[in-house]
Amino acid sequence: MTLRQLEILRAVIRHQTTMAAGRLLGMSQPAVSNAVKQLEAQLGFPLFERINNRLFPTEAARLIHAESEPLFAQHAALEARLQELRQDKTGRLRLLATPPLGHGAIPQALARMLGRQPRLRITFDVRRLDEVVEGVESGLAELGVGVSLEARPGLSVRPLAESRMVCVCTPDHPLAREPVARPALLRPWPFIALEAGTRMGQAIRQAFAEAREPFQPTVEVRYADTARALAESGVGVAVVDPFSARNRRQPLTVLPFEPAIPVTASAFWASRLPLSRPAETLLREIRSLLEQPEMPAGAPPLRPISSPLHPMARNLREA
């Protein structure tokens, strides 16, 4: 089955008529019809049901279409890269990140890069971790940055910094006088929790369960950045990743949370492709920023991981 045959099948499924598919592909209607018949004869089973001059895909055709979509996504990404190379030889970086670094270290790192390379072109967006991973896998972005990434085949992973979850509250909060925040100490205060559907949200719930403390949040949010902003405003206390805590806009007390929940910020990209020079430069800038002590006194430090291939990266890549 050739890529051209898959392209014809895809067009007919999307437009339901051979005439419309032909217009899209620059083919005549009879040529599309013959191509479909030849493909059905080659495969030995029908691909469409013909009802009222429209073609409706069979279950087999829908399966083939779904399985072949990643091929077209990769082809589109390659075409976009080639277009970039034709139009702009100054360099381009397509980047996706989750909020912890996407709202903090990455904008600062990009500002540094563009200060030295003003002709560099950047495409950047902040999304949920699963969307960032999907964007990198499909070729929409060259580089992804996220926190608490699980092992994923086909991705090369480079850890950037590691630390542990922290508890945040306003400086005048009674909890701010404590050296460490534990689930029992959080019980009297309104608690801002991360959703159970997030990895960090699940880890926090497990910590409360291990401490045999009831988990009764006042507010639930998806992003740690949102929880940190609410804590800054005095809504309550929150347990967030340390990278989100660094993104504070107002005075904020940051305490170690126990039991300790380790977190790692990582960059990742498709294993089949080498990192571009702008991507390597950006990762150096991010590590440099994470080395700067921006956390309040008493907060657990970030430990930048400067080696190109940390053991964790090998484990994730080989998984």
Rank of each mutant, 00 (worst) to 15 (best):
R152A: 12
F243S: 03
L95N: 07
S163W: 00
L101I: 01
L309E: 11
E294A: 14
L160I: 08
L230G: 02
S276N: 03
M19R: 14
L302K: 04
P308C: 03
A73S: 03
P118V: 02
P256I: 04
A229D: 12
L25Y: 09
H103W: 13
L185R: 12
R284V: 11
P296M: 01
R287Q: 12
T198I: 00
A203D: 04
Q206W: 07
E280P: 04
N315M: 15
L194D: 09
L82D: 06
R277D: 13
A66I: 06
R94C: 04
P296I: 07
A319Y: 11
G44W: 13
T170L: 06
R128V: 15
P57I: 10
L93R: 11
A279W: 05
L9N: 04
R86H: 06
L289D: 04
A11E: 00
L114E: 10
M113H: 07
F191I: 11
R177S: 14
Q29P: 03
V180P: 04
A21G: 07
S288T: 10
S156Q: 14
A209F: 11
V133E: 10
R212S: 12
R314C: 07
S33M: 09
P190D: 04
V157P: 09
R164K: 11
S156W: 11
R205C: 12
P274L: 00
A141V: 11
L101Y: 01
S271Q: 14
E291V: 08
R246K: 02
P293F: 07
V133H: 07
F215C: 03
V254H: 02
R187W: 04
G115L: 01
S28R: 12
A238R: 01
A265D: 06
E134H: 09
E67A: 15
G197I: 13
E285W: 04
L155H: 13
L6F: 08
P57A: 07
G298Q: 13
P274I: 00
L43K: 08
D88H: 12
V240D: 02
L302R: 00
R164G: 06
A265M: 00
L78A: 14
G22T: 14
T226F: 01
L283F: 07
P293C: 02
T170C: 09
G298K: 07
L185D: 12
A184P: 06
Q42W: 04
T281D: 14
A111V: 02
R121C: 10
